[in-house]
């Protein structure tokens, strides 16, 4: 390129458009260099995110907390906000009145209209027990 030899004030005309030959600002050169370094560093070191282990992902161990996470927002769709009944019946006290075995059966195999939520989501036995524990806490 011949621009280096041109004086900075030199102005020429191309296609009727005047153009100057101002120099590249120093801070831009620093930006170019910084980005180039970052790119190499990132290419070599960056790893994909995996936050699945942090919450809800534990398949072993029984706790009402884990059960709540599993119930999440799914059960509320049919059983209403706060699980007080909607399209499906209320879940408050259901484990006491119907018995743990009955509720486990429904979770695993589905009810009259209810989806077999445990089977469809491949829940472990511990996870099913966690959900039962969480349901007992619904008042």
């Amino acid at each position: 390129m011949s621009e280096q030899h041109n004086h900075e004030d030199h102005i020429d005309e191309v296609n009727g458009m005047k153009q100057g030959h101002g120099k590249v600002p120093r801070f831009l050169i620093i930006v170019y260099a910084a980005l180039a370094c970052w790119a190499v560093f990132y290419a070599l070191t960056a790893k994909g995110i995996d936050e699945t282990a942090n919450a809800g992902g534990n398949t072993a161990g029984v706790s009402a907390e884990a059960g709540k996470a599993l119930m999440g927002q799914s059960c509320a769709l049919c059983h209403g906000q706060n699980y007080k009944g909607g399209l499906g019946p209320t879940l408050a006290g259901v484990v006491d009145t119907k018995g743990e075995e009955y509720v486990t059966g429904i979770l695993k195999n589905g009810g009259v209209t209810m989806t077999a939520i445990a089977k469809d989501n491949n829940w472990t036995d511990d996870q099913v027990k966690s959900v039962i524990a969480a349901m007992k806490e619904i008042k």
Partner: peptide, 18 residues
């Protein structure tokens, strides 16, 4: 790049930047 020099009447700052 067309409009700016036309409207301001000033030459485009730097060919090298372009």
């Amino acid at each position: 790049y067309f409009l700016l020099p036309k409207i301001t009447g000033k030459p485009l700052y730097s060919h090298k930047l372009s």
